[in-house]
């Protein structure tokens, strides 16, 4: 064993493995700090002052959201526009909106949305992606889904559908009745509207380009 080459030395490789693992882990933790700062939720003040956050605050539900091509970034980004009524109000306070989003996020987990739908592209593939569901042409004023529920606004149509999904069979693959109450439905719609305002680096690509309903107006 006198002239053991370093390449066949177990301890050399053990140390290399430890160093490489440690280095990668430290790098990941460092990047996590940076990312955590960038994806923390914004505030109402940010929205009022036009500060762009990757994940806006819950009061984003008071505003119109659209998904537009950004020439600087080369893909679509959510754009927060003028005020827009959400369930008849555009003055949801930070607490109220936060509580609604909290209820909605809880609802999205408890009702197991993710095991049929995808959220931000993650989940199951049995039902449509919900990332930009709020902006979907089908739910707009002249869209098929809104027309079917007989409601006048997007949020009311979505809430109605969520409460009685089997009454509105949209496809052979129906959504089951999950016992969603009126309040929970409101929360879940707020959650969906908030999710559509998250900057997802252009995913999904070309959303709604066929119908053309989403770009701006």
């Amino acid at each position: 064993m006198a002239k053991t080459s370093v390449w066949s030395d177990n301890r050399f490789w053990q140390r290399s493995a430890a160093w490489i693992t440690g280095f990668s882990a430290v790098l990941l933790i460092w990047l996590t700090f940076d990312t955590a700062g960038q994806i923390s939720m914004g505030t109402d003040a940010d929205l009022q002052n036009g500060v762009t956050k990757r994940v806006p605050g819950p009061t984003v539900i008071n505003y119109k959201i659209s998904y537009e091509m950004s020439t600087a970034r080369g893909h679509e980004v959510p754009v927060i526009g003028e005020k827009e009524k959400f369930f008849g109000r555009d003055d949801w306070s930070e607490e109220e909106a936060g509580a609604l989003l909290h209820l909605g996020k809880l609802g999205s987990q408890v009702k197991n949305c993710m095991n049929c739908h995808t959220l931000l592209g993650n989940g199951a593939y049995y039902a449509p992606d919900l990332t930009k569901a709020w902006l979907d042409p089908a739910w707009q004023n002249d869209g098929t889904m809104q027309a079917m529920t007989g409601k006048d606004t997007k949020e009311e149509a979505m809430a109605e559908f969520l409460q009685h999904p089997s009454t509105y069979p949209t496809h052979a693959r129906m959504m089951p009745d999950l016992g969603i109450t009126a309040e929970e439905a409101k929360g879940i719609v707020a959650f969906l509207k908030h999710m559509s305002s998250i900057d997802t680096n252009g995913f999904p690509r070309n959303f709604g380009k066929i119908k053309g309903a989403v770009h701006g107006k």
Partner: peptide, 20 residues
């Protein structure tokens, strides 16, 4: 570990996380 730990980046393309 060298490729896998930071390979987590391929799940962070579209969930709201930065472009890097």
């Amino acid at each position: 570990f060298g490729s896998g730990i930071l390979g987590i980046g391929h799940h962070y393309f579209w969930i709201g996380t930065p472009e890097y």
